[in-house]
Structure formats: C-alpha cells, structure tokens
Design a protein around this nucleic acid. Structure first.
Lengths: 186, 186
DNA sequence: ACATTAGGACAGTATTATTGACTCAAATGG
DNA sequence: CCATTTGAGTCAATAATACTGTCCTAATGT
C-alpha cells in the first residue's frame, strides 16, 4: 500500500455549502473536453510548483532535525488552535501511528501543547506554544518568499483563477474543510 | 516525498516586508504586499489539491504493486522519449540510487525500454514500451477525470491564471525545462 | 454494567529517499 | 597509447514517512 488507503473519508466538520453549478462529480457531461496538452501541462505544473513550494522551508526544518510531516502538523495546528487529534487526523489523512511519532516530537520539543478538552476530558486539544508559533512563523516566511512574488507577478486576476482551479481539483471533503471554520475561524 | 537535500534556490528575489513601497526595477513591478490570509489560503490549496491530484492514480498503482515514484518516472519518460538517465535525474531531483530501484522495476516488468545512445554508447536512452504507454495512459486518464471537470468548472480564464501562478511558484530551472523541449518537443 | 470513543503504545513492514564507495565501459584529451 | 573523466549501474547502510494489526487506559454514554 503506497499511500492513502482511501481517497475519500467522511469527515467531522462538514458544513455543506450547496454546490453551485457542479453537475455530476467525476463525469464531465457537457464539458468542452479539455485538450490533452492542457492536462499534460497541468501535471507538470502541479509537480514542479508543489515540489518547489514545499522545498522552500526545508533548510530550516533540516537545521532542527524536523521533516515535512512536522511542518504540516505545525501548520494545521496553528491554523486550528485547540484542534482534537481526531480532527487533525482527518485533515492530514494519515494514520494515528504516523501522526503519533510526529506529534510526540513536537510536544516533546515544546512546539505543541496539549490541553484536556473541557467537555470531553479524553481529548487532548492541540495548540502551538509560543516557541511553536515562532517556528511556524519562520517556516511561513519562507513560503511567503516563494508565493508572494509569484502572486504579484501573476496579478490578482490570475490568483483568483489559481484559487478557483485548485479548489476544484481537491475533493469535496477538503472543500468542506476550507469552507467550514478550517483555517479562517477555528 | 519526504525531502530533498538540495533546495536549489534561496529564491533570490525576496521583497522585504520592512520595505514596502520601494519600486523594484528588476522585476515586473513592486508587490502590493500580499495579505497573509491569501498566503495561508494558498498553502492549504496547494496541500489539498496536490494530495488529491496524486491520489487519483493510486488505485491503479496499488493493483500493480507500483508506487508514485514509478508513476512519476513513467510520466516524464513518456513526455521525453529517449531521455537519458542523467536528464531524468535532473528533472526528478532524486539520487541515482533512488531512481535505479524504480527504473529497474519498470524495465524488468517491460514498461520501459533502454536503447544505447547513437552518439554516446554509454547512454541508455529511456522510452516507454507499448505496455508502458498503455499503463501511462490508464494513469493519465484518472488524472484527467480529476483535472478536466475542475478546468471546465473554473473556466478558461481561471485556468490561464492557474497556469501563470503555478509557473511563477516553481524555480527558474523548472521553468526552463518547461520552456525548452521538456514535454512538448524534445 | 457494558459498549463505544479518544487517545496512546508496541511491534513489524513498505516505500521512497539519502550517503558513500565501488565497478565497468565508453568517451576524451594530453 | 594511456590517464582521466563521464554515463550508468551496483552494493551496503541509513533515515523519514507511511502502513498494518493489536492491545491498553480512561472517559462517555446508554
């Protein structure tokens, strides 16, 4: 099993926005049949852009003996303070055991704090410590250095298009996360 | 993709947040200082879109006992017939040993053929066999099923913007590859 | 009381990557 | 001709990230 066993998983925080003009997901009924070269180009774009985007923070991570998995956890905890372990697992779509190693290191090194849930004391609500927030800011800055010039250069209209396309590429579950409090209100 | 030791570029062009309104003669024009929420959003978009894009082909790969590394090699060999091993390494940015295992499996299972270079007989020019092209088509189809509806839904203008932004995110090396024969001409 | 849930832990394995050193054959240059 | 470099392959060891299955505790809920 290479990666994720399932492509879709029913998530918790589903705040269903009624889809606009999405007919049947998966099948383009009347779609103008995108030419193959356009798709080929998009494959390359996704590979190179994602690779170089993620590479941006690697120097800092390596200094600290952390990896990208730690960065991802840090990012999503920072964006969702007091998130439960379960909800974080749903976002990352990795197994509990995979997260445990990464999260354990982050807690042990004082980047992430755990607090018992007020309603359910079994929960360990995750938040960044001051140290964790500082590191996340450092990592974030590196990615800003890559993304901001790209956005400026491409212009606001292009950025709008970028957002629309990227959003349409991901699954409904991920769209739901982004619409519901994920990252902007939680 | 766990990590790469070489980040390859501190991305020379960095606009300092401390120096806001300085006109920048070198590049297009000065950045209107992209708001942090826009960058945060883009981080999430890149994570989810890339994840779900790559997941699309996983079912087929798993059937065949192959991984994403095999898919990437298959993709870039398909797009660059008779590519040398060295050039493939430059595109993928992995080590010879990492490629060797993947490439060995693809050759052994008859997906990729090696031919001695006509000018330099040390080279083993890589191409897809019929079987390899068929598999690549199958994998490609899965990704079309994810990308084509996204493109149709977002519209041509959005796709243009998507391309501009993604292109601007990657390093110069990758842009050069895409401009030069990479993928469309050889 | 009992089943379920949240979280953690242990043991083992797979994939993809890394480094370093080494071989071999072909090309290249004094 | 011979020495060096280069393209490719290989061996051995290791790291990071992920997976599986199983078991455990404590809190919840019925």
């Amino acid at each position: 099993m290479p990666r994720s066993p399932n492509a879709e998983s029913p998530s918790g925080r589903v705040d269903a926005p009624d889809a606009p003009d999405v007919p049947n997901p998966g099948v383009a009924h009347d779609a103008p049949t995108i030419p193959e070269p356009d798709i080929r180009l998009a494959q390359d774009l996704l590979f190179f852009a994602y690779r170089d985007f993620t590479n941006a923070a690697d120097v800092i991570l390596e200094e600290l003996g952390l990896g990208r998995a730690h960065h991802r956890a840090l990012h999503f905890i920072g964006r969702n303070p007091r998130i439960t372990v379960s909800d974080l697992l749903l976002i990352l779509r990795i197994t509990k055991q995979s997260l445990a190693r990464v999260l354990g290191a982050l807690v042990e090194q004082g980047y992430v704090a755990q607090a018992p849930g007020p309603d359910d004391r079994r929960q360990r609500l995750l938040s960044l410590t001051g140290k964790g927030a500082a590191l996340e800011q450092r990592l974030f800055k590196r990615q800003v250095e890559r993304l901001a010039p790209a956005f400026s250069q491409a212009g606001p209209a292009a950025v709008e298009g970028f957002r629309a396309v990227m959003r349409a590429i991901m699954d409904q579950t991920a769209r739901d996360y982004m619409d519901g409090g994920g990252g902007d209100g939680g």
